[in-house]
């Protein structure tokens, strides 16, 4: 339970960060809020060359919103600062809900969105919500910058698409369509300081006049090594007016593609049941936001 020894580096700007990563990438870890990293380093026991602290980089902590580009969140932006932005609660409610459930105040003050994503824990709260908004990530290195959908970026348990010398720069959530709503529901057995056992996020867009579903994105959390985008399930909704039966077939479709673990905390079968409940509840909540 001791931190291994390492050299601590604090780049002054993203240029220096890219250069350090290009030099030491193989033998370095990025430190943002450290709420995952420090715990992991203490448990790993293995020595490490460098820890590169990005928490002081203002550019990586910026959060902006406009009606063209949508919400752009710097990777090092703190969870609490994101939550505090009125536009997040207004337009990206599922993300707001996901952040609100993370740890406790102390954790959200230290922890960053980029850290939650790059840590790539199957139980992380924000990724399913981000997937539901079709979030894109920007990945940078000293050579280039590239974009990709977040759902492809997180590849599995503790696995991302980050290559050598690369870092996560920002996360972009497109402007939500008119008449849309969203929700993130999760299940946990303790009231605080607790990770989700199953989670579901969804965003929907309704036709303006008659309440039929125009578009829907459903994301499942903690029921696989990475968030699952349930496209077939979402299709069931499109063009339909929701009713109980329809929702049950949607939630069943989600349960069918989920791959929850089976352990002493709960059986896989039970987790699938919970997933169905969460999908249906999240839909009801999101629908009510638009249809009233």
């Amino acid at each position: 339970m001791y931190l291994p020894s390492f050299q601590y580096l604090a780049p002054k700007d993203t240029g220096e960060l890219a250069a350090l990563l290009s030099d030491h990438g193989d033998n370095a870890r990025i430190l943002s809020g450290g709420t995952d990293l420090l715990v992991q380093l203490k448990n790993s026991g293995a020595d490490l060359g460098y820890v590169i602290d990005i928490s002081g980089l203002e550019k990586l902590s910026e959060i902006s919103y406009d009606d063209t580009n949508g919400l752009v969140i710097g990777a090092a932006a703190k969870l609490d600062d994101i939550m505090a932005l009125p536009v997040v609660k207004e337009k990206y409610f599922a993300l707001y809900q996901a952040i609100e459930t993370i740890g406790a105040r102390q954790i959200r003050t230290m922890g960053s969105l980029g850290g939650n994503i790059c840590n790539a824990s199957p139980a992380a709260d924000t990724p399913p919500a981000l997937v539901a908004f079709n979030a894109e990530v920007s990945i940078a290195s000293d050579a280039a910058e590239r974009q990709m959908p977040l759902v492809d970026f997180i590849q599995g348990n503790r696995k991302t698409d980050l290559g050598k010398g690369e870092y996560l720069k920002s996360i972009t959530l497109p402007v939500p369509a008119k008449n849309s709503g969203s929700a993130y529901h999760h299940f946990r057995v303790r009231g605080g300081m607790e990770i989700a056992m199953v989670a579901a996020a969804l965003s929907i867009q309704l036709e303006a006049d008659n309440g039929t579903v125009k578009d829907a994105v459903i994301a499942l959390g903690v029921v696989g090594p990475a968030p699952i985008k349930a496209e077939d399930a979402a299709k069931i909704l499109i063009g339909q007016k929701p009713n109980e039966e329809l929702l049950q077939s949607v939630s069943q479709a989600c349960a069918d593609i989920s791959q929850p673990i089976d352990d002493f905390r709960a059986s896989a079968e039970y987790r699938k049941e919970i997933l169905r409940v969460l999908i249906e509840e999240a839909f009801d909540e999101a629908y009510a936001q638009v249809a009233g």
């Binding site: 995952d36 715990v39 992991q40 448990n43 840590n119 824990s121 139980a123 992380a124 348990n157 990770i195 673990i261 089976d262 352990d263 002493f264 905390r265």
Partner: peptide, 17 residues
Amino acid sequence: ELETTTIGFHNAKIRSV
């Protein structure tokens, strides 16, 4: 009954988020 069955490898890595 679980108390006496193997629970599988998932448990090994339930520790950190």
